[in-house]
Nucleic acid binder design. Structure first.
Lengths: 147, 147
DNA sequence: ATGATTTAATTGCATCAACAACTTATTACC
DNA sequence: GGTAATAAGTTGTTGATGCAATTAAATCAT
């Protein structure tokens, strides 16, 4: 029983450490850099949603990206420094900011998505789509167990 | 073609952001804290190998945990501050440190492993072992594609 | 309508990661 | 044996995270 649990732990270990997702994030960032984009993988994950719909609040972004509010606040600050987006105080709710992309923020979309796709191709080489979807379903269950 | 790639990207998105492994790490750390252990998930990943074999070099630990040397150096420094381990200058190679656990470092092993197992049980609730192993195989392929 | 409770966002603090530059010791080469 | 290349570890910088505490605005309750 105990032995069983420990060996299970051992199998699960690499999963637990998140080395795969770290490797993916690192490769993504490297691909951004090589194509001349000076953004991080985390910044990309925020921009990803803004390209879909502008005017999101920081709270919205926090929920979408599964980050806490302080993390989003600082990510937004860094992106604002880079002039990729702006905070606009919401007229309806004076506590909230609405986030809008700048021209530059729009401009880099295609280039970023190309690099994201490239990263995915590199990561999934030799993995058939069905297996990948099954793996994702497992990850989804695990995530729901913990959130 | 392009559309196909983009929808693939979007399926892959949660994977790319590493939210599952983040959630696992957070839960592990929370479980440590609740049981009175003041260590981080990252520190645990170092201790995990030292409980198996003491006297590892920092380079060894870097390879085992897939971290770079600076990261290991600082993790070891923090663990040394907490008096869980010590650096011992290797007699064979004066550049290298050998890492040894203190009595306290040994003492917390069982408690830590209990919490790691608890975290795994929580994470894997509702996931059968075969599916999990299949998912791990996919992750292994992805990791090898990127490393 | 006012006092209490939520909610949006920010700031402080500690830890961690990636990358680059550096020191010191070891090994390789000629 | 002496110089060059390699390897182990450290330090600095920047960006990110988690948690706790704070401010300010909105909502709820009586």
């Amino acid at each position: 029983m105990m032995t069983n649990e420990i060996s299970y732990a051992s199998e699960f270990y690499s999963f637990l450490t998140g080395r795969v997702s770290t490797a993916i994030g690192r490769r993504l960032q490297r691909n951004f850099k090589e194509s001349g984009l000076h953004i991080t993988a985390e910044q990309w994950s925020v921009l990803y949603y803004l390209w879909e719909s502008e005017g999101l609040s920081q709270q919205d972004i926090a929920k979408l990206t599964f980050r806490d509010k302080p993390s989003v606040s600082r990510l937004i600050s860094n992106l604002e420094k880079q002039k990729l987006l702006v905070r606009v105080c919401s007229s309806g709710d004076k506590r909230a900011n609405q986030i809008y992309l700048t021209a530059q923020g729009h401009k880099i979309k295609d280039k970023c998505m190309q690099q994201a796709e490239k990263t995915i191709s590199e990561a999934l080489s030799g993995v058939d789509r069905v297996s990948m979807q099954q793996a994702q379903q497992i990850l989804e269950i695990v995530f729901n167990n913990l959130k």
